[in-house]
């Protein structure tokens, strides 16, 4: 039994039970934002993988001045809605509508620390709390578009859904945001969905991945 377990921390992923108890025999964990996420699950192959990133910090802003605020912090601003932009530090800026932006951290950083140094504009911009409301899973591997085609109606093949594209749609009957981007050196499909459905969606995605021998991986798949 490892000494570090998700239960040792008050901050836990929405699906921490999938990584604890009897399921944790091969797991090692890494501290992320006041809790732990699986660093390794003892599996490493080229098979498609699902990685839990739910604790990785993120921040959101909405309003007519949100674009100007995000820009003033030095983040790249995607030109149109449903586009994502990467920073040199591995953060990801999502533009979900004309007036809504989310900032996703790299798993080893905390974008919220950077945001804290900048005061919100007095008008036309307010924070969105997307940390505890949404779960964050990353799907890796060659067959992601084929796997997601089983549970999602949007064409996610590279020709229609290149890196930097976002789809706000239904995945396995649950509302979700799908982002095609890069974490570390790995191309991933990030899936963000209602935290209340996290356990269901985790199981539904693994079920869809079973045909392609999908595995549960840890953060070591994404970070050096």
């Amino acid at each position: 039994m490892h000494t570090i377990q998700p239960e040792s921390y008050s901050q836990r992923s929405f699906i921490y039970r999938q990584f604890s108890g009897e399921k944790s025999v091969d797991n090692t964990f890494m501290q992320v934002a006041g809790g732990v996420l699986a660093l390794s699950t003892g599996k490493d192959s080229d098979a498609p993988g699902l990685i839990d990133l739910s604790l990785v910090p993120r921040a959101g802003f909405r309003g007519v001045n949100a674009e100007q605020y995000v820009n003033s912090m030095g983040f790249p601003v995607p030109a149109s809605p449903n586009q994502a932009a990467m920073t040199s530090q591995g953060e990801c800026v999502l533009r979900l509508s004309q007036k809504e932006f989310w900032l996703l951290s790299h798993p080893q950083q905390n974008v919220c620390d950077r945001v804290e140094g900048y005061a919100l504009p007095e008008n036309g911009c307010y924070p969105l709390y997307c940390q505890d409301s949404h779960t964050w899973f990353a799907m890796t591997g060659k067959h992601c578009p084929d796997i997601l085609a089983k549970v999602c109606g949007v064409d996610l093949r590279a020709a229609c859904f290149p890196p930097g594209a976002i789809a706000q749609t239904s995945v396995a009957r649950v509302n979700a945001i799908i982002i095609h981007h890069v974490i570390g050196s790995e191309q991933v499909f990030s899936i963000m969905s209602d935290s209340a459905s996290a356990t269901y969606l985790w199981g539904a995605l693994l079920d869809a991945m079973a045909e392609y021998e999908g595995q549960v991986y840890g953060l070591n798949k994404l970070i050096e």
């Binding site: 809605p81 749609t169 239904s170 509302n175």
Partner: peptide, 10 residues
């Protein structure tokens, strides 16, 4: 108008 063509169930 924001997301393009989608299933009516959405």
């Amino acid at each position: 108008p924001l997301n393009g063509p989608r299933n009516i169930s959405e």
